[in-house]
Amino acid sequence: MTSVIADTPIASAGPGAHLVARARWRWPEVLLWLFAIALIWIAPSRYLLFNEIAILALLALSIDLVLGYAGIVTLGQGAFFGLGAYTAGLMAKHGMGTFPWSDPVLGLIGAALVAGFIGFLSSFLVLRGSDLTRLMVTLGVALIVQELGNKLEWITGGADGLQGVLPAPILGLFDFDIYGRNAYLYSLCTLFVLFVIARALVNSPFGLSLRAIKGNVTRARAIGIPVERRLVVIYTVGAAYAGIAGALLAQTTQFVSLDVLSFERSADALLILVFGGVGTLYGALIGAIAFKAMYDVLASATPEYWGFWLGLALVLLVLFARGGIMGLLRALQERFARPRAERT
């Protein structure tokens, strides 16, 4: 596996070492995950916030796979998020809170399958056309799904939302407590597992071929990469990820409203990714933390100015940190790493 920890440069053991080294786990990554676990003891009263961050991070991660690695601009990830939320919500509701039908993990799988299937079907729409066309197509699909959610009242509960979502204990063992501690741990574990898979994916030959398509589609075709097939696969995977994020929200809040399909959520998640840094995976996590922390502090102090602060942050980011927070961190790391390298 890839779980070898390395923070020292690789001694040159053949040209492959350079490539493999990039896929190794580094200390800052490990620290970030340990910190996420430690939050249980550091701030026991904020589980709900942490849970929300984990879910948003997963949604932003799903966009990073599609946009950051394959270059597909999308504003429709909220559709898959909502589909996942309703799927998991309905499974929990109609499973009557009994194992295994209301089991949350089964709900995640169901959500991934449904969202992934719809993602697969709609992927053929985003294959053709430029960035702008894709933006419009993804937005269009999201609006259709949203309207369906509203009209199919007998399934979704319409504007009243889906009531009576009572998932069984996780794997029949851990009940969702009222403080949200298990909910946060559950979301965090799900995020971690999916993150590890995404990390393997982007560092693999498959991930390299995605970056090639994003970098130069003419050349990608000329070396024989089946561009369309690759894009269908990653769009489907991204949709499944977003579906799982939606399922987590439905299960941990035990309620699904039409709001899960809203355009704002897609836009927020895209914004979070840009804040954190596109095409880095960690940008999704750090962006979600920064966004929610900012919201928590600013919106509770002066809720009417939230839009102003968000806009200001965006403008500053575009002016001074194109690569987002990850870009800033990387620039800092290079500044400190260079003198050290010169001495040796």
């Binding site: 490539l19 896929a23 693999s204 030959p205 390299l208 050349r219 070396i223 024989g224 690759r230």
Partner: peptide, 29 residues
């Protein structure tokens, strides 16, 4: 591919020719 290294570029082209560029579990290299 402007953001690749020459080694990555050629490794990808060769992997594609050998039909192993769709592998996703193990890292490149």
């Amino acid at each position: 591919f402007a953001d690749f290294t020459p080694l990555e570029t050629i490794v990808l082209a060769m992997s594609q020719a050998k039909g192993i560029a769709s592998r996703w579990l193990r890292p490149v290299g």
